[in-house]
Design a protein around this nucleic acid. Sequence first.
DNA 1: CCGTAATTTGTAAGCGCTTACATCCGGTGT
DNA 2: ACACCGGATGTAAGCGCTTACAAATTACGG
Lengths: 353, 353
Amino acid sequence: MSKRAANNNLKKRAMTAAPDSPPTLEMVAKEAGVSIATVSRIINGTAKVSPERKDAVEAAIAKLNFRPNAAARGLALGKSNTIGVITQAIDSPFYGEGLRGIEDYLQQRGYTALFMSGNWDEQDEERCMSELLSRRVDGIIIFSGRLQDRQLAQYAKQVPLVVTARNLKAPGIFSLPVDDERGGMLATQHLIGLGHRRIAFIAGILDHPDASLRYKGYRRALAEAGIPHDPKLVVPGDFHEEGGVEATRRLLASGHKFTALFCVNDQSAYGACLALYRAGLNCPRDVSVVGFDDLHSSSYRVPPLTTVRQSIRVLGESSGAAMLQLLQGEQPNISLPQVQLVVRESTAAPQPD
Amino acid sequence: MSKRAANNNLKKRAMTAAPDSPPTLEMVAKEAGVSIATVSRIINGTAKVSPERKDAVEAAIAKLNFRPNAAARGLALGKSNTIGVITQAIDSPFYGEGLRGIEDYLQQRGYTALFMSGNWDEQDEERCMSELLSRRVDGIIIFSGRLQDRQLAQYAKQVPLVVTARNLKAPGIFSLPVDDERGGMLATQHLIGLGHRRIAFIAGILDHPDASLRYKGYRRALAEAGIPHDPKLVVPGDFHEEGGVEATRRLLASGHKFTALFCVNDQSAYGACLALYRAGLNCPRDVSVVGFDDLHSSSYRVPPLTTVRQSIRVLGESSGAAMLQLLQGEQPNISLPQVQLVVRESTAAPQPD
DNA sequence: CCGTAATTTGTAAGCGCTTACATCCGGTGT
DNA sequence: ACACCGGATGTAAGCGCTTACAAATTACGG
């Protein structure tokens, strides 16, 4: 309350070189010689105000460098104009692109995105949820989260939710599924089309839905081409570069021959390429490599990486759009562009033996 | 106000499957049969409360799934427990790592980071500032921003500021300078040590302080080794991969011979490597390449990139630490670990002619 | 068993804003 | 000239919380 706040300011002012408490509506009103209601109306354009008063108020605002207090406004309005966003790690290139899409979209429409990293940990993710709920964000976008569908449905009772890479129907939730299976097929078919028969797969974390769908697409393409699926050629990774390195190393060590490598995501593919290089193998001459995601930097790899593009950026924008529709009370009618194969230079026909 | 808010809720409830308005302190108090002051005291641990009431209140909180409204609390307390962070682009790997450091540090200490992207645009950056100020964040970290020192000093009157990659002294501001010049020297000396004499430099955006300091280090190393500085070997880039590609292409096309390439940052180096590859040149055999930043993915390039490490992650953490000290009213006493050269495989001795 | 001090608890004001409702103004129509 | 109307302003309540201060309760010594 006021004593404390004032106190605080005093302290701050004394100790750091910090702020006078910022101007309030009331100060502006006094300065301009009108009531605070009038000022509020001018700021929000919620009612007609005579030009002279308007000028006076605008002058006062400029003079005092007034900025409305978002917390107070939020309290009065019962909304924060903020959308919470939960991801696993803000420093992953994958999430980075998605967040950028979300931020861009929302910001242009007067919303602010509040990002939180779940750090690949379910508990941590719950902590984020809790924090966002406490801040009374108007909605939450879960960008590739780990929370169970059950929990999500629970949270959806408290706040509108948009979740990516899921396919669940529940009131208050909109989910944006990515066609991972088709992507997996596309990648594998490309390899098969080049003449590869022994195609290894570097998987992600086992129970992750993205990973398993991509894996499914891989098997399906194999089956359709009449190529038997050899489980020995499937090794787990971790969605990161290091997992790709490890997996490839293991694959190589196992002695099971393969001429191509489909990786669950681009980062794994980066790792795979490095491991191949270390083993003295050339990509694509000795082993073709395909990734998934088409990260920005994939086109700048040496050689540029063949991959499956799902435009994470667009995925982010679409989540933002869906959220805003949800907030309007509409049922979102967003759909994603289809995944597509981007053929670059990390794939080639296998060497004749 | 209340009519509106209630109204709103009604609407929401009808149209989406959305929330009843969340429980308030008052509801908890009623449920537990105590006053709201008591509830508040229990939540914040600000005063002793008898065990039985405490139990009753805690039960009520759990039952209602109560979470304090951060906006209301912020309003009452005059602080938001939020630190605003301005960067250029949340999807850049460079900023991503920094933000991660900041987020990690702050979150563990009860603060939330609010990220905003300035999109490499000064005006946009001002918009971010404005937004953050409006939200009454407790402090703002400017992670490699473009705002002029003058403007910064101005803003610092309103809110404590931590800025990275600057060296300015002003009340209410703490700056964390990075030793770019030393880094530039290290990189260049390494190349010289390997026997290179014709070392090109891919610069960043011209007036960017980071870029010019690195350039200065480059020239100094050259000078100290008695190698004349050839301006023909210096070409501008843009801190991104594409700029590296372009710059290298131009360098190659110019016909000026060089055996090594020092790039203003890792992303430029990625681009350079690709351009070299496209030109049929091998790195490091034909041209050695050194970057700057040591992005996570640099160690997974093929070949792994030799670069100058300044741990952006640590830079982020340090900014967070400095901010918290500033908030305590202390003069921050943070210093960064020294930049250091990380020799990997993109550099080698030049080919004998 | 009572007075008094040391708790624990409740009451109410105030943080800065929005907006319903009351008030006040000049302009119509008759 | 007067009742009436519509639009511009002002007044004040309330958003959910913290906390100073008052009130109520407890504990204790004499």
